[in-house]
Design a protein around this nucleic acid. Sequence first.
DNA 1: TTCCGAGTAGTAAGCGCTTACTGAATCAGC
DNA 2: GCTGATTCAGTAAGCGCTTACTACTCGGAA
Lengths: 351, 351
Amino acid sequence: MAVTLADVAARAGVSAATVSRVLNGNYPVAGSTKTRVLAAVEELEYVVNGPASALAAATSDLVGVLVNDIADPFFGQLAGAVQSQMGPGTPGGGPRMAIVCNTGGSRERELTYLTLLQRQRAAAVILTGGAIEDPEHIEALSARLRRLEAAGTRIVLCGRPPLPDAEAPAITFDNRGGAQRLTEHMLSLGHRAIGYIAGPAARTTTRHRLEGHRAALAAAGLGGGADRLTVHGGAYDRAAGYEGTLALLDREPGLTAVLAANDTVALGACAALRDRGLRIPDDVSVAGFDDLPFAVDTTPALTTVRVPLTDAGAHAGRLALSPDAPAEGVVTYPTTLMPRASTAPPPPEKP
Amino acid sequence: MAVTLADVAARAGVSAATVSRVLNGNYPVAGSTKTRVLAAVEELEYVVNGPASALAAATSDLVGVLVNDIADPFFGQLAGAVQSQMGPGTPGGGPRMAIVCNTGGSRERELTYLTLLQRQRAAAVILTGGAIEDPEHIEALSARLRRLEAAGTRIVLCGRPPLPDAEAPAITFDNRGGAQRLTEHMLSLGHRAIGYIAGPAARTTTRHRLEGHRAALAAAGLGGGADRLTVHGGAYDRAAGYEGTLALLDREPGLTAVLAANDTVALGACAALRDRGLRIPDDVSVAGFDDLPFAVDTTPALTTVRVPLTDAGAHAGRLALSPDAPAEGVVTYPTTLMPRASTAPPPPEKP
DNA sequence: TTCCGAGTAGTAAGCGCTTACTGAATCAGC
DNA sequence: GCTGATTCAGTAAGCGCTTACTACTCGGAA
């Protein structure tokens, strides 16, 4: 039915092995033969059978990318950057294809996808986004990853810290430092009643950002009441920001600033503040994290911390494809404070 | 090295064929045997070799999804919805995996990815987003799709009209009607000088939305000067909105409304208006299209047209998996006007 | 008791490709 | 002109799985 290697070989008057060698180019073939084979490929519109070659060569050209939420631009950018390194004419030989797997932040699906990728004999797997900090889950995850590595799959972590006993290279963001600088920025503006809406608990990203915030507070001698002004959202979404802000406002009516776990959460915070009749930044300052494209378009423009998603994603993609695992351990990308109009000095004390 | 079917068979004391049958469940196997096999699979941590089974069975469990820009939430939502139909415990037998391919709107990459998917012997391919209306490209695309279909790959179109001579099912959005209703909404508010920032030319989505807009204008007897107040963006992005708005403003200082090709473009339009010192909606009304999640969080909240991305994506996913091609032709999803605060009556005429 | 047809399990022939290994030229060096 | 290296192409043995086809067992109808 479909055109096979043998058909091409017959057409070109050579053996199947020669055609294979021309196509893979890892063995000397005379120029004239090569031309003839290529012509036959063209004429017959031959397309390699991926599964067959994966089986024979025990390698596949599939790379898995695990993301928490593909509809979230944070992961969209990351995935896009990873994919920019694949396709034709990219490092590591032939074209690769990225399989983006949407875990939805579910532990179970994370593991399931890993098995599915092992089943595809993926060449590499890139785990993105903060890791879940449940020892039990980490153990299960490590076990799966160990199996994958044993099967020859390269593992790359992007946006999460390295795993306890694996040597998979990790790319991380300086979330802690970014959060710290952001809080310092708020403090320097004069804010003292700063609410913090953290992401879901038991996530590395959540913890690191919160740690940075706490560190800045502590350095300013304000560490004491921090807990009271911190709430945890159920996800990194708008609802977390909205509800978190309302909760904070109830807890501390004198709130002058809200720091959100990320830009999307900040959007929800802004909505809640507006619904309560508070102006940004006149009454309350708001800041996000990540500097997603829309941050510059909110009103007022959102102060946030830029995370170099594109660079990191591309880097992860390259690491995944590099035939020789450099295993350079952890690379940390810096984060940058982006002060914009949503933060300003707090309003003068009301008499 | 890796555990194979034979290993499992040996462990369970049966033949490889039996193990295969237990795993695929399309042949009677006695309960006790099944239990024994499953236990062996468990103990050996056996994971099927996907490529091998794809080769032998001449089918793969990979589904390709072509998107224009994975970092755009529009496609992110669509891709997420498609994937929600795959994975374990979904229609069409075993777990499938979605390969999301980022074409970046490039014709060449669109074709390349299609070849790459053919190479993987994908079970189905879902093409999302507006199609490019270049006869030459359509021809090339159709040829590739015909080859894919000949190879047994199901084709599903989502968000684009059916192809000339293919019977691939298509899911479309009522872009035309949505745009028409949106323009009618503006007209009913009293706007007459309505600028339109269209998407890139030669895209079906661009054309349909523009047609709807023109139709509403014509029905109101305003069809005449429509061209003068229409600009085309180079992409569906913020820059298109920003630059398009500045161009419109130069062309018609008395502009009272800007309709954008989509929500992201509208964001750019808002930014340009603000930079020119114009208030929304007091001086100029703005509307978008798609109703992406952030539309409700802009200031003021963006009037837009809701497009049921999640439903459509899930539908496309189901169509792609359904073993028997229903080939129900074209299904059109309705779009809904979402009037919000960014549109209001035009300011009173200045004397 | 014989025979037949369910119901199960095994055998073996590929699926289309890669890649050692082998073989046939060609060619430089003496 | 002969030898040994070198270059290029063919042969064939799988890679791990699926699936006709065959073979056996067993209960019940004849």
